[in-house]
Design a protein around this nucleic acid. Sequence first.
DNA 1: CAGTCCCGCCATGGA
DNA 2: TCCATGGCGGGACTG
Length: 446
Amino acid sequence: LHLSKTQPADPITNKQDHKIPPSPPFPPRHPPAMDPAATQPPPPPPPPYLPPRLVIDGAGGGSGAAARACRHHAYSRKQKSLGLLCSNFVALYDRDDVETVGLDDAARRLGVERRRIYDIVNVLESVGILVRRAKNRYTWIGFEGVPAALKELKERTLREMSGLAPPPEEPSAANVSDDEDDDDKLGDADGDADSEKLSQSIDNASDKPDTPMCPRRSDHRKEKSLGLLTQNFVKLFLTMEVETVSLDEAARLLLGERHAESNMRTKVRRLYDIANVLSSLNLIEKTQQVDSRKPAFRWLGQAKRKEGATVTVALPPARKIMSSKRAFGTDITNIDNKRGKLVLETENKPKLMQGGSSMLKTFESQLGQGKSSGFVYGPFHPAGARKHEVDDQTVRENETKNIQDWENLAVSFRPQYQNHALNDLFGHYVEAWKSWYLDLTRESTS
DNA sequence: CAGTCCCGCCATGGA
DNA sequence: TCCATGGCGGGACTG
């Protein structure tokens, strides 16, 4: 079945041979044909075909590790990661003149199978960056769609959790957990009420505020969709008092605590996919759990385009924000990823020591502002044209930034409690503070 | 070796 | 029947 995988012969070119011939791994930045017309149904002129995967511009810089990693050719799976693909995808479409996104077009331009585009698009849609319009066709919203999507997500969840939203029908057990594979009918009393509640609210979620009353059998499939899982994952951060979660925890929470091992494995695999994409959007970052070797993900909440080394305009490397996070989708070599090392917090501290202004600068750079390159990264300024205007929008942005500042400050100050409980407690404070502040600012801006 | 996660088979459901 | 979607898990890759 999987002959190609065991083929000693070129495993790279063997693949996809019956699929759309891929274009180069990534098109030249700012591909010349990248005008609105190019994203329309008539397929753009095929880019010059190059052997797939072989010509990654090693912006990662031939690290020995990278070189070693490559069995044959210059292949590394990192070059194909969903995160990187997502970055490329965003770089490709996050432009003023792009309105629609065609899946085929994307696949061709990015040199990947259509299947992968689905993965990307599904999570982008769940965070509001894209909207599906029709078969094969999405509308590009961009990063400015994210705050609204998150807000709506949070509100919906809170509403559902507080029981204000009457369940469409008596929630049968089958509706509750998204892994109810007609198997594990353990009528057990699940341990965790919170997660149970959450998974309820989560599983009834749908794109439309109003959906046909009853979940159809086809929903069974939807329940497990990557898009929904993405939203559920995000909800964990938005509505539960967690600062970071490991994927295991997330899977457990989303499964409502009854874990058939195989379900867990599958779920975790999907969460990896999602985490990679969200991470490349800068919505989350990978960190290390304090008391275990297990990595976890921290909510950043500030979606923005990452500067992919191979994709977008080169940044002055010095501006790069270092952390222990795995820079999905950006740094090809990932050389700064020290697994099992606890470096994030200590790296943050020096920034604090330098005083607020330096922190602000960091935030600014994170927000893509204060750049001199002329290339605009700011999530809320895809056009860049409005950058200097002082209008409502700008004010709102500043406020957003403010929140972010405070959050970052809190995060940076988060002490390294050995004691889990203390750590959690601190998390509670931060969380409460955040939501208080968010509410406050939301009121004042709406 | 455990953690990651790419890859593509193939089920599903709509046209 | 065709085709667009996308669930799913094997197993390759990584550290």
